[in-house]
Amino acid sequence: MNNETRLHRAAALLDDAAHMRREIDQFEPGSFTLDEAYLIQRASIRRRIGRGERQIGIKLGFTSRAKMIQMGVDSLIWGLITDAMVEEDGGVVDLGRYIHPRVEPEVCFLTRRDIDGPLTALEAADRIEAVAPAMEIIDSRYRDFRFSLEDVVADNCSSVGLVVGAWSRKLDGLGNAGVRMQFDGRDVQVGSTGAILGHPLRSLVQASKLLHGAQMVLPAGSLIMAGAATAAQALPPGVHVQCQIGSGAGALGRVEFRAMEALS
């Protein structure tokens, strides 16, 4: 089996597992390199685009120390977002689509200019059209949510869904805004946007470098999920999930959804 065939088979295995809501075993250690894991990820996304989905942005993963510790890895990673992953703010999320979903609070950026090369922090701020509170729904195809760094990258960094709140231009208070995620009004994760690489804007700088290394251009109007501000929380059916970022006049705002099982 040549290398291209091997990587495409891995992409098909992961894509089919997501479609069929089926756990798979981790790949054998050393099955592929990190660079090859990203090739698998893109091949899997191309299958989805071939079915009619549209790529609309990127997500960063393991940008907080809490997430690195939780998942047992030590490197920042990134994945791709398609339009089929977007859930409605205030709507209902069908957990019947997933295997063992979790949710985490994030900050989402909307770009106003192409990102076509490495950026400084000042240049990154100039690329932003708006910012919003957000939550990402993650779901690993691997059994027991256990994986190596290469495994999770190949699996699009466990990204399956996102809920984005109202857009604003409130960039000044992003550096250390309080983050509170609740299930049915009860705190389940509390933290700060400062956990996202010290400041969420640094995620744009890192994203620009990653894109440049992959010889990719992120067009204007794209989403960038900056990474989790806290550890992820297992998502049971029937709960109302709400995330508030910041407080008072400078608050970034709130985003929410209700999780339900097997709606279709």
Rank of each mutant, 00 (worst) to 15 (best):
V239F: 03
A262M: 06
R42M: 08
S168T: 15
D94V: 11
I77F: 01
G248K: 08
E106T: 02
D116C: 10
A234H: 06
V164F: 11
R143V: 07
W78A: 01
A249D: 15
I56S: 00
D83G: 02
G30D: 03
V205E: 12
L122W: 03
N176P: 00
R186E: 13
H100K: 13
R143Q: 10
A10Q: 05
L162F: 11
R54M: 10
L80Q: 12
S203D: 08
V190W: 03
I69D: 14
G161R: 13
Q182P: 00
G72P: 03
A229M: 07
M1S: 12
R97M: 10
V153A: 10
I81N: 00
L122A: 13
T82D: 08
F32M: 09
V160T: 15
G90L: 10
M85E: 07
Q55V: 14
A207W: 05
D116Y: 02
A259H: 05
D184C: 05
I81E: 00
D114L: 03
E87R: 15
Q206N: 05
A207K: 02
H8S: 04
H8L: 08
N3H: 13
P118C: 11
E4L: 14
G79F: 04
A132W: 00
R258V: 14
E261K: 14
A12T: 10
V86I: 15
A130Q: 00
S264A: 14
L119F: 08
A154K: 01
I40H: 00
A207Q: 09
R141V: 12
S158E: 01
G91N: 07
Q41D: 10
L122Y: 04
F183V: 07
E28W: 06
I58D: 02
R42Y: 11
G191L: 04
D89C: 09
A17S: 14
G248W: 09
L39E: 15
F145Q: 03
I81R: 00
V153N: 01
S159K: 04
E129C: 08
E136H: 05
N2R: 06
D126Y: 09
R202N: 13
R9Q: 15
F183L: 12
